[in-house]
């Protein structure tokens, strides 16, 4: 069974990869990708059931934080009922989503700003080295050079130093990191394609 899974995975991966290079295979590639989307949708249903089970167990065992699990289960149940009866495009359903999910995620985003500021302040206490000093100085400099200052802009900072830091130092570093990430992705993909790594199970 494991061998069949490996053969199927490698063949499917090869078809999808080669479909990008040889138009002859693009039809088969599209079919395989369509199946994948259907399977991913099914996985979401299974994943939600798993989420319900995890939180239901937390509630029945009265574990730490089980109050939040009750809230999650209630919210999930109410949203599910509304979604089934009204449909996802109904204005009331849209209102439910926009009035709860969007503000909650915006709140987390706002918290993130404070968290990052606090993390920046603590950075030197945790990691006292040259790179941390450069990191903090660059962050402070970029904030200072981008902000609207009460006495107007400083031409040297805004027009010369900031663009140079942004477009030469930062862009060069970012491209270097992204090239590394792309090479890592390529070799990880190839290892899976050759069956050396099998994230779909197997001993």
């Amino acid at each position: 069974m494991r061998t069949v899974a490996v053969i199927l995975a490698v063949l499917t991966g090869l078809i999808v990869l080669l479909g990008y290079f040889f138009p002859v295979l693009s039809g088969v590639q599209t079919v395989v990708l369509s199946w994948t989307i259907i399977l991913a949708g099914t996985a979401t249903v299974v994943g939600v059931f798993s989420l319900i089970l995890v939180h239901f167990n937390k509630v029945t065992r009265r574990e730490k934080g089980s109050v939040y699990s009750v809230l999650l289960l209630m919210a999930l149940f109410v949203t599910f009922i509304f979604g089934i009866t009204l449909g996802p495009d109904d204005p009331n359903m849209q209102l439910l989503v926009n009035a709860i999910i969007v503000p909650v995620e915006s709140t987390l985003m706002a918290l993130l700003a404070v968290t990052l500021l606090y993390a920046g302040v603590r950075l030197l206490r945790r990691r006292t080295d040259l790179m941390s000093v450069i990191f903090l100085l660059t962050a402070a400099f970029m904030l200072f050079a981008s902000a609207t200052l009460p006495f107007g802009e400083i031409s040297l900072l805004n027009n010369w130093i900031r663009p140079w830091v942004q477009q030469v130092l930062a862009l060069g570093g970012a491209r270097g990191i992204l090239i590394g990430v792309a090479l890592g992705t390529l070799t990880t993909g190839l290892r899976i394609l050759f069956g050396a790594d099998r994230p779909y199970g197997g001993k």
Partner: peptide
């Protein structure tokens, strides 16, 4: 979701 399923499979 599909990543969560793969995580279960990998754990097993």
């Amino acid at each position: 979701a599909s990543l969560a399923l793969l995580a279960q499979d990998t754990l097993e």
